[in-house]
Design a protein around this nucleic acid. Structure first.
Lengths: 125, 125
DNA sequence: ATTTTATGACTACGGATGTAGAATATAGGT
DNA sequence: ACCTATATTCTACATCCGTAGTCATAAAAT
């Protein structure tokens, strides 16, 4: 539990996702290919990497002449902290209000609801 | 459904919360008192108000010599859009993954879970 | 050895946000 | 009519984020 509330921007997050998915240290080339669809310039990606390292979201290691990056924050941790933030800031910390709102109107499809019911009903307390 | 994805900053959100809670147009003085605990200077609050109006998050109306503000975005709408954003960006849009993660580890207390079960079990599809 | 290519470092710049000081307007009291 | 307290506008500034250009360096290709 060493997670300090690090802010990760939207674009930076895309980089994190690549790293989380990779599951092992990868180099810039790998990352560049993985985010090709974003159309970012090479230097843009570099900037994101530098900033993520500065923020403590990634670690970097030089192997030969290339840098390899790995996440210092797990996707799980990050998801959890972001979800918590949302519930705290928008629902005064009430999970219940939050769940109620999830049901509201078109937020969920019938199928979503089915799935959720299944999940919750299985849950033992 | 006129909600365009307006970005509201963290501090600005505090102002919105006051307005949502108030439920009727209120003036700057009212707002100032409501956010006293934040320790913001008067001009800071003014700036937030001006920006929120510019963004289309608030409407403003002059009554006599004072300005009265009211939200143009409902709390419900805003919550919904933010929740959706979170699920889209962190869980690839999968409500299911999201719910599963909610259960993960210490995110929920036993009581939270009880409440949620109750809510979900009541839900008809 | 010289040229091209890949990689990384440094610098920049505009917009958003948090924050507030200075200047101005306005109303109310005297 | 003048002073004072309060409200509003304008301007400013630092930080973060998205984005990228330029320069340097090193390796690979010719």
């Amino acid at each position: 539990m060493t997670y300090k509330n690090i802010n990760i921007g939207e674009s930076e997050l895309e980089i994190m996702k690549v790293l989380w998915k990779a599951g092992e240290p990868v180099n810039t080339q790998y990352i560049s290919e993985a985010v090709e669809d974003k159309g970012w310039k090479r230097t843009t990606i570099s900037t994101f990497l530098v900033r993520l390292v500065e923020k403590g979201a990634l670690s970097v290691e030089k192997r030969g002449k290339l840098y390899y990056y790995s996440p210092l924050i797990s996707q799980k941790e990050y998801r959890k902290s972001q979800t918590k933030n949302l519930i705290m800031s928008l629902y005064n910390g009430s999970i219940k209000d939050f769940a109620v709102s999830l049901f509201d109107e078109q937020t969920l499809s019938d199928n979503d609801i089915k799935e959720l019911k299944a999940i919750f009903e299985d849950k033992e307390v």
